[in-house]
Design a protein around this nucleic acid. Sequence first.
DNA 1: TTGACATAATACCAATTGGTTGCATTTAAT
DNA 2: ATTAAATGCAACCAATTGGTATTATGTCAA
Lengths: 115, 115
Amino acid sequence: MMTPSTVEETQGAFRALADPTRRAILMHLSARDMTIGEVTEHFSITRAAVKKHLTILEEGQLISVQASGRERINRLEPLGLKSVSDWINHFNQFWDERLLDLQRAVENHERTNNG
Amino acid sequence: MMTPSTVEETQGAFRALADPTRRAILMHLSARDMTIGEVTEHFSITRAAVKKHLTILEEGQLISVQASGRERINRLEPLGLKSVSDWINHFNQFWDERLLDLQRAVENHERTNNG
DNA sequence: TTGACATAATACCAATTGGTTGCATTTAAT
DNA sequence: ATTAAATGCAACCAATTGGTATTATGTCAA
């Protein structure tokens, strides 16, 4: 279980997340599935530009697209964020250490000044 | 507590993480602090290119730089990843839901075939 | 003080990016 | 059968990106 994310998946996901418009699109799709037109309504750029963003999100496996008549339904694929989450988690160790450092520093400061 | 990450911090961090070389640099710095020259040894690009990457990592607050004589020590700032972690966590909810869906599907499949 | 070392800063380049417009195609509705 | 709607696609553009090479600056050591 827990098949590790490939380097390509990781790169595709990070690349897709680098743009603020794309992150906003993911937020909108977390509320509900949407057609390209519906996604576009939330922004002040053209539909063609939104389509490009959606393609990059699809390549990063952060969304999936399902054709339905003349529409294309864009759906959030939350599991696609796993490769990113995994990568970040590698640093949790250092993160925790740093938080402890800060904590100790604050305690020291309090002891020195109030104790 | 838990001061929320600003939009700018989030953008700087995501932007910095989009490049595979920069992610690799962070990995190296998680082992130990390094000068620009030391970081460069791990790659096949020029020191100037590495310096540019380090600048972007610093802007994204993922590393800090401390001058020491003629050297500049680059240090991982794991807390800088917090804004990214926070953003990702927004999707954990949907992630968990999707995992449950998968789990139920597998159980159903097993029941249908073996039960 | 001279030379070597580590970095800074600038100009330059090709490729990529995020956006546009215009036109073609497919599907739904009258 | 027409028309309108939703999308696909290609050409184009300015700005940014990731890299280079070159030159300048500050610092350590002999």
